[in-house]
């Protein structure tokens, strides 16, 4: 029965590679955006904090699908190349940047108060205090939720299929159109996503086990 699936597997896997590429790039960009937004939100001046909060509110309250279509319809007017990949990178990074910011903000806040005391008591302040004592601990605390957000991001890339990016989901639809075996093909697509995401979650669990949990 799974003959169709096996036959179309190479094509689906090519789509999966696009998914992985898109995910990797967006994860990096989203993390960068997230760190900046978290710092702006927690330690920024009025303007920085305001911008960060508006950004976060918009991303959290708007469906990513709306943003995907908006990029598709609107970007040409601003002169940006309307290739699906570009739109996809832009939207996915911006959207998940908000989730990343929450991950980093929560991690910073989870560093125990006593660590701030100890650093300050030794005469540290500002960038020393943050760089030597606080941020290294925050990064370790951020590990597992970071991985979870990456998993969400990978799943989110499936939405970019609606504007024509031939990643895993769109590859699946194309194959189904050709072969008319939706259960098999989408089942296979789901399986490939499962392998990717579950592997990530296993990395997350390994990270959690390895991390020395303080106190």
């Amino acid at each position: 029965m799974p003959n169709v699936l096996i036959a179309s597997l190479p094509y689906l896997l090519r789509g999966a590679i696009v998914t992985l590429e898109l995910s990797a790039v967006c994860a990096l960009l989203a993390s960068a955006i997230g760190i900046i937004a978290a710092l702006a939100q927690s330690y920024g001046g009025l303007v920085a904090r305001g911008i960060a909060l508006i950004y976060l509110y918009l991303m959290r309250g708007t469906p990513m699908l709306v943003m995907v279509f908006a990029a598709y319809y609107l970007l040409p007017y601003v002169g940006i190349n309307v290739e699906p990949m570009t739109g996809g990178v832009l939207v996915v990074s911006l959207y998940y940047g908000a989730f990343m910011s929450e991950v980093f903000r929560a991690a910073l806040a989870s560093v125990p108060r006593g660590q701030w005391d100890a650093g300050r008591a030794l005469g540290m302040h500002g960038r020393w205090l943050m760089g030597i004592v606080i941020v290294p601990q925050a990064l370790r605390l951020a590990g597992p939720p970071f991985i979870n957000t990456c998993i969400m991001l990978v799943k989110g890339t499936s939405l970019v299929s609606v504007i024509g990016l031939v990643e895993l989901t769109l590859s699946g639809r194309e194959v189904v159109e050709r072969t008319l075996a939706p259960f098999q093909v989408f089942g296979g697509v789901a399986l490939i996503y499962f392998v990717i995401c579950y592997s990530l979650s296993l990395c997350g669990k390994a990270l959690e086990a390895r991390l020395p949990h303080a106190h």
Binding site: S158, V176, A181, P182, F183, F186, A190, C197, S201
Partner: peptide, 23 residues
Amino acid sequence: LQLVRNTPVLVQMYFFYFGFAMA
């Protein structure tokens, strides 16, 4: 739980929509 949290909901929708239509 592992199944639903590691697959995109869009794919699940397509699975049911196109799958049942074909069936």
